[in-house]
Design a protein around this nucleic acid. Structure first.
Length: 548
RNA sequence: GCACCUGUAGCUCAACAGGUUAGAGCGCAGGCCUCCGGAGCCUGAGGUUGGGGGUUCGACUCCCCCCAGGUGCACCA
C-alpha cells in the first residue's frame, strides 16, 4: 500500500526514485502515512520543498485512497480512506507479493539459507535454538513473499571430529563390557552421558564390534553414531517447527570430488603454495589477515578446505546468494571464506554470513556454564520441555540477531504475563473467539460490497483506523524483515498489532454494535485481523490457539 | 594488539532509506468489568540516545577520535 502511493508520487513528479513513505499512524498530527518527499526531491527538481508538497497535495487529494492530504513544509501527511485499506486487505490472501519482493536485494535471485548445520556428534544444544528460530523464520518470510529459497542443513559427517566421536563411542563400549577404558586420553574426546546410550545401542546391533579391525570398528561406530544423532536432531527440529529442503552431507561433498576440484581450480589460479609440508591458500590477497591451510602436513584436508569446496558446490547448483547463519563464535571463519570465494571468482555478494550474537542462559540470575566437552550442556529439547516451543521461538526472534541476549529461564518457566508471546497469542485467540461467537449468532463476514455500503454510513473511530492502517502494512513489514535479514521486525509488528486489537476490543462492541453499519465494518476488521495475525503466527512458527 | 557486534527511560528492547514532538513491554503511581475471553484496557511520572568533534535544511541513524561490555583471532570444527 505504501508502494502504491509512493509510485503515484514518483509519477506525478516525474522521478525514478520512489519517495520514502513512513507509517506515522501512532504519532499525533502527522497523518497516518507521511513522506518527507519535499526535502528529498528539492535538490533534484530545483524547487522549494513546500512547493513540491503543495503540488502533490493538490494532485493527489482526488485519489480514491486519499481521505485527506495535508502539506507541512517538506512533509506530506496522508490520511487514508478506510474502504481503500479494507479493499487492500481483502486482496491480501490472493498474494501479489511481487511488488514488495522487488524492494529486496534478493528479488529474482535463487537463494539458499544454510543454518543450524550442527555436528552430528551430539544432540542439539540450546545455543542452536536461536539460529534455528531465526533461520526458519527468514526462510518462511522469503518463501511467503515469493523469493526462490532453499533451506539447507549441512551435515558435518566427515573430518577430525567424527574420528574423536567414534573413538569416544568405542571407549564407552569397552566400559559397558567391563573392559578397561580411558576417555581422558582422547584429545578432545566426547564425554557426554549420551555416548553411553549410543554405545549400548551399537552393541545391540553389532555385538562383535570390539573384535573388528580398528578401522572397521571406527567406521561402524561413526556411521552408527551419526545416524542416531542425526535422527535425534531431526526429531527435535521438527518439534521446533524447523524444516529443511535439503540435507547435504560433508562426506558426499568429499566423495564427489569437490574438494580436489576446488583446490585444483585455486592452484590453477596461482593462489596456493606449499610451506612446512602443508598446502596454503593466499587468502591475504583478498583481505584476510593471514594465509590459510588447505591441506595439513598429515595430508588431510582442513575443515576450511572442505567448506570452501562445499560453497563452490553450492554455486554450481545455481544459487545466486547463499546466506549462512553462524554463531558469533564462528566469526573468525568469515574473512577467510569470503577471501576464498573471491579467489574462486564468485560474485562479491554470493556468500553472506548472518552472524547471530551470543545467547546467555540465566538461572537464578546467573549465567549457566555450558560446555560440550565437560558433558554438562543443556539441550534444545530440554529448553523446549521447559518453556515450550512457542515461548522459546518467540523469545529468540524478538531480538535483532546483532544483539547478544540473555534468556532468563526462570522467567520463561513462569509462563507469566511478562512473556510477550502470550500477549500476542491471546490477541489472536480473542479475535478468533469473537468470530466463533459471530458464527453462532449467524453474523457472517461481510463482502467487500457490504463493507463499502457500511462505510457510507459509518465513520471508524481512532482505535479502529489505527488497527486498520497497521493491518494493511503487513507486506511492508515482511519486506523489512526480508531486506534486513531479521525476523524481529515482524515480531515487534505482531506485538504492536496485538496491542491495537486489545485496545479496539476494549472500546468497541462488535456483535451488539450501535448500528448495522458499525457491525459490518467491525466484522470485516476482526476477520482481517485473524488473517494477518494468523499469517504472522505461521511465519514465526508459533501455534495459533483456538483456546488458551 | 587487530577485527566484528553492542551501548537509547529503573530493567529488557524498538526506532524503516538521515525526517516532524526518540517509542513499546516490564516495573512504579492512579483509574476501568451488569457487557463478545480482565491473560485485557485507560491515564501519569520517567530521556543530554556512553562521551567529544564533523557532514547536513535536519543525526539514535552517516564519518572521525575516545570510553565501556561481549565475541573472534588454529595445520579445531
Amino acid at each position: 500500500m505504501r508502494f502504491i502511493i509512493g509510485k503515484e508520487m514518483a509519477n506525478i513528479l516525474g522521478v525514478e526514485d520512489i519517495p520514502e513513505i513512513r507509517n506515522t499512524s501512532t504519532e499525533k498530527g502527522k497523518g497516518e502515512l507521511s513522506s518527507p518527499v519535499g526535502f528529498m526531491m528539492a535538490r533534484k527538481l530545483k524547487k522549494r520543498p513546500d512547493e513540491i508538497t503543495k503540488e502533490l497535495a493538490e494532485a493527489l487529494s482526488s485519489r480514491s485512497w486519499a481521505e485527506r492530504i495535508e502539506h507541512k513544509g517538506g512533509f506530506l501527511n496522508i490520511y487514508l480512506s478506510p474502504f481503500f485499506l479494507l479493499q487492500h486487505l481483502y486482496g491480501l490472501s490472493k498474494g501479489k507479493y511481487e511488488e514488495i519482493a522487488q524492494f529486496t536485494p534478493q528479488y529474482k535471485k535463487r537463494i539458499q539459507v544454510e543454518y543450524v548445520s550442527a555436528n552430528p556428534t551430539g544432540p542439539l544444544h540450546v545455543a542452536h535454538g536461536r539460529g534455528a528460530a531465526v533461520g526458519s523464520t527468514l526462510v518462511n518470510i522469503f518463501k511467503h513473499i515469493g523469493l526462490d529459497t532453499t533451506a539447507e542443513f549441512y551435515i558435518n559427517d566427515g573430518g577430525e571430529q567424527i574420528k574423536k566421536f567414534a573413538l569416544s563411542i568405542l571407549e564407552r563400549v569397552k566400559e559397558i563390557k567391563g573392559l578397561p577404558f580411558d576417555i581422558e586420553s582422547i584429545d578432545g574426546g566426547y564425554k557426554g552421558e549420551y555416548l553411553k546410550d549410543i554405545a549400548e545401542k551399537l552393541l545391540e546391533r553389532h555385538p562383535n564390534i570390539l573384535d573388528m579391525p580398528q578401522s572397521k570398528a571406527l567406521d561402524t561406530a561413526a556411521e552408527f553414531g551419526i545416524a542416531l544423532m542425526l535422527q535425534d536432531q531431526k526429531e527435535v527440529l521438527k518439534t521446533y517447527k524447523v524444516e529443511f529442503d535439503v540435507w547435504r552431507s560433508e562426506k558426499d561433498i568429499r566423495r564427489e570430488g569437490w574438494v580436489e576440484k576446488t583446490i585444483n581450480l585455486l592452484k590453477e589460479r596461482g593462489l596456493t603454495y606449499e610451506s612446512d609440508g602443508a598446502l596454503w591458500l593466499k587468502t591475504t590477497v583478498f583481505g584476510d589477515d593471514k594465509d590459510r591451510v588447505l591441506i595439513k602436513k598429515n595430508g588431510e584436508y582442513t575443515y576450511f578446505a572442505v567448506d570452501v569446496a562445499y560453497h563452490f558446490e553450492k554455486h554450481s547448483r545455481g544459487f545466486d546468494i547463499v546466506y549462512d547463519i553462524w554463531g558469533s563464535d564462528h566469526y573468525g571463519h568469515i574473512g577467510r571464506m569470503k577471501a576464498a570465494m573471491k579467489g574462486l571468482g564468485l560474485p562479491d555478494d554470493f556468500l553472506q554470513v548472518i552472524v547471530i550474537q551470543i545467547v546467555r542462559f540465566l538461572k537464578d540470575g546467573e549465567p549457566i556454564k555450558m560446555s560440550k566437552r565437560a558433558g554438562t550442556f543443556t539441550l534444545l529439547s530440554e529448553l523446549i520441555d521447559l518453556v515450550g516451543v512457542d515461548a522459546a521461538r518467540f523469545y529468540f526472534l524478538m531480538y535483532s540477531p546483532d544483539n547478544s541476549m540473555d534468556f532468563d529461564l526462570d522467567l520463561a518457566v513462569k509462563k507469566s504475563m511478562d512473556n510477550p508471546v502470550y500477549y500476542v497469542q491471546y490477541s489472536y485467540t480473542r479475535a478468533l473467539s469473537l468470530k466463533r461467537k459471530a458464527e453462532e449468532a449467524s453474523v457472517t463476514v461481510p463482502t467487500l460490497d457490504e463493507v463499502k455500503k457500511a462505510l457510507e454510513m459509518y465513520t471508524p473511530s481512532e482505535e479502529e483506523k489505527l488497527l486498520l492502517i497497521n493491518l494493511a502494512d503487513i507486506r511492508y513489514q515482511l519486506m523489512l524483515s526480508a531486506k534486513n535479514l531479521s525476523p524481529h521486525y515482524i515480531v515487534n509488528y505482531a506485538k504492536d498489532l496485538a496491542g491495537m486489537l486489545h485496545s479496539f476490543y476494549q472500546s468497541k462492541r462488535v456483535l451488539d454494535a450501535e448500528s448495522d453499519s458499525a457491525r459490518v465494518f467491525r466484522m470485516a476488521l476482526i476477520d482481517r485481523f485473524v488473517e494477518v495475525m494468523g499469517l504472522l503466527h505461521d511465519l514465526m512458527g508459533i501455534e495459533k490457539k483456538e483456546h488458551m
